[in-house]
Structures are given as C-alpha cells and as structure tokens.
Design a protein around this nucleic acid. Sequence first.
DNA 1: CGAAACATTGAACCGCATCAATCAAAGTGG
DNA 2: CCACTTTGATTGATGCGGTTCAATGTTTCG
Lengths: 238, 238
Amino acid sequence: MPLANPIPSQHPDRHAAASPCLDCARRGHCLGGALVADSDNPPTVVRGVIAKGEHLFRVGDPADTLYVVRSGATKTYVVSSDGEEEVRGFQLANDAAGLESVCDGEYRTNAVALNRSWICKLPASAVRERVTASAAFRDRMLSSLGREFERLHGMLHRDRCAADRRVAGFLMQQLNKQNDDTAHDIELPMSRADLGRYLGLATETVSRVFTRLQNRGVLKNRGSQCRIVNRVALEALS
Amino acid sequence: MPLANPIPSQHPDRHAAASPCLDCARRGHCLGGALVADSDNPPTVVRGVIAKGEHLFRVGDPADTLYVVRSGATKTYVVSSDGEEEVRGFQLANDAAGLESVCDGEYRTNAVALNRSWICKLPASAVRERVTASAAFRDRMLSSLGREFERLHGMLHRDRCAADRRVAGFLMQQLNKQNDDTAHDIELPMSRADLGRYLGLATETVSRVFTRLQNRGVLKNRGSQCRIVNRVALEALS
DNA sequence: CGAAACATTGAACCGCATCAATCAAAGTGG
DNA sequence: CCACTTTGATTGATGCGGTTCAATGTTTCG
C-alpha cells in the first residue's frame, strides 16, 4: 500500500493531534505552515514515513492529498505512450508533490520516494477551501504555482542548450534553493539515469558531463553528494 | 504606448459600459465570461484593437491586466541572457496572455501582436479577488492553470522527440483546440522562425518538416494556413 | 515594380544517442 | 569474512539528426 504509517507528534499539545504544522520548526518555509496559519479550525495534517521505492500516489488516483517532503526525497514521473519514463521533478525538503492535485481531481503523475523519507499529508480539499477563505493563503498558493511555472519555463529553455548547460543549470538551481550564498554542497539523491530522464539526456551523457566538470575543477563528486568548487564557473556555464 | 484604444460596445445596455463580457457571444469559452458571471458588481472589462507588432506588455511592467485574445493572435516571449528570443506561447482566440500576472506582481514575459488583433483587458486585481469570492471561478482559474501546466509538460516531452514529432504534436494541439473532430484547417499566424523558437528548432528544420509532411500527403501548406489531409497519420506521428 | 521579409533547399559539420564493455559499490547468503 | 550477484557509474567507438552557413525562391507591401 502506498500510504505511510502515521507518526505520533513529538510535542503533543492541544493542536498537535490535528496538525503537527503548528509546532513545526519549518512552518515558515512550508505550504503546510501557511495552510494552518491564522486558521481557527486547522485541517488535519498527518506526518508519515515512506520507504525507498514506495509510491505516494499514481496517475489516475483521486487527488485528495497534497504531499510535502519533510526529509528525504521523491520524484514525480509519468510513463509516456511509448513506454519511456519521463521524470517531471524532484522534491526535496519543504517541496510539494502533487501541486496539480489542487488544480485537478486526479493525479497526473506518479510520485515515488527516492529514499526513506518523512512526508506530510495535506488534505487537498482543505487547501482548495483555504484558497477562497484566506487572501494570504491564496497569494501564497498562486506564488507557489508561479514559481513552478518559472521552473518549467527554465527547463524548456535549458532543454535547448548544450548538455553542460543543462546539468550546470540544474546544479545552480539546487544550489540557489538553499538560499545561502556560501553553500557549496548539493545532495543528489537521484540516480544518473533519473537525472538524465529529467534533463532529457542519456545516462552516459550526464555521467560524462559530471566527469568533465570535475576535470575542469568546477565540482567534485562524492557519491550522492556533489561539492561545488568553483561556483563562478558553474554560474557562467548555466 | 502599449495600450490599445477602447472600443465602444456594439450592444450597449445597462451592463455593457462596465463589461462587454455580459453580452459576448463567447462568454462561455472565455475567462472574461467566467469573471463576470454571477457577479453582482462586475469589474470593468475593456475591449481594444492592437496593431501587428505592438506590445501588450513587457517584462517588468506591473502586471495589472490579464489579456484575452478576442480575434487575431499574439505571442509571449522573453529575451534570454545570451540575447536569444525564446518564444513561450501563442495566444489565439479565447486564449489568455499574462496568466502569470495573477500569480505575480509583474509580467515575466513580453507579449506582442502577430497581426491586427482585438483583445479584452481584465483587471488582474478583480481576477485575484474573484478567486476568493467565488468557488466556481476559483476552480475555473485553477483548471486554466492546470491546463497550462499540461501544455508545458507536453512541450517538455516533445522537446525530447524528433523534429517531426514536435511539429506534429504542435499541429495536433492546434487542431484539438477547435474542439471539432471534423476540423482540418489550422491557422498559423506566426512565422517559421517564431515556430522554431517556440519548438526549439532551427527555422530551416521547421521548414523542412513542413515540406516533408506535405510530400508524405499528411498536410498541405497554404500560406498562413495549413490543411490537414491525413489526420490519422499526423496523430500517429505526434 | 522593386525592396525587404520570409520560406525553401542544399552541403558540411558537430554534439549527443546508442551500443558495448568495464568498473565500482552495495547487498546477500554461505 | 568472503565469493557472488546486482545495481549503478564510467569510458570508448560509431552513426544519425539537426544546426549552421550559404544560396535561391517566394511572398508581401510600400
């Protein structure tokens, strides 16, 4: 079954049973925090664990839940008519999977955990309702959707660039997400094959780019991590 | 100036001054119709003409208006850091330009008329407000955004296919928009160069694909029009 | 009509996919 | 703990599709 087991809140109080978001340290960075903020009747948000390889949802499932990754990572993907897997996005900490569930009645992608992950489940109906109930949440929601549009447009642009640029652009994007100018380590929980399917490149090409960038002294590969040695050079590429 | 001259309504009544949408024959197909429907205080919607080559808005302009194309055509585009024009979409009848104005405070693209066009201007603030005021409009809006996501995902997929598929997919998309299974004529108001910048192909490649498809008896080029001769073959390609 | 913009066709080159082999790491079971 | 398997990453060789450069044809519009 795709559903994760609920985890009891670490800090129970009168709110916690309904929504762990009220106590969550990152409620300022997460859609769940915005969902419960200033609500006199906070919706039921449930935390859960999900094992590597398990699915959060599949194409066609009724889209009743918006998932937010608390730790770990997931990918969303579809299987196209010719049987090829098409990776549409990766979700790391504080990212939402199934945002289109708010736009539509059923999921249009599959979502699977790339490693053991903690996730939060937000009822889609509550999200939709809160869009009308709160102008602040509406704007937050529209802003999230706007950022997703930006990401997609950026991908479209990158899809027309050379392989080096695509990878460099992806790495810069990951780096910028940690809004910390001094950050230089990037977590890459996905396989080279997944990254290739995301960027529209063959696995081998992705691999070649990484070694090329390493040889040029731009970055250093360390298993599932990647250390950016020369951020300026990387930015110039992307 | 980017703004078009207002046109007096053809059928004035007590509503028409504020919103020509109330009388509009296509209010059922257009976001403007949904905006004024069931509203006891319909917002001011203005119609206007815009000449070929004139801009509706530019990157960085305050995004206070959502444009809907009534007739004619527009394209949205950005100029990327390397000076290349990147076409992000075409808007034909009933399509909206500047949907991101509802998500954000300023336009993130430029929009220009491809030929003499009639457009309707919806105040973005009214659109945003109506999202909270009416659950029906909220769902209509979210559905529009969802379709836009679908289009972008489809483009991303196509960007990784062979040139023939990209063009075929685009043509099928245009065909399907005329929700009429027997339709076989497609209006192509954009230049081959624009189409290439939209599909991520060189102008010459687009041209070659069109002649190739014509030689195979799939379609027939007629200036800015294109007649689909063998719809099945086209669908099989895309 | 003539000029300018756009479309088409041809030839050569290049980057990435593909096929194939090797290498490295992570489990798994005795 | 070590063979053995499995999975993922890397590197090499080859071919094709699309870009690029260049020339010619066609449409549009003053």
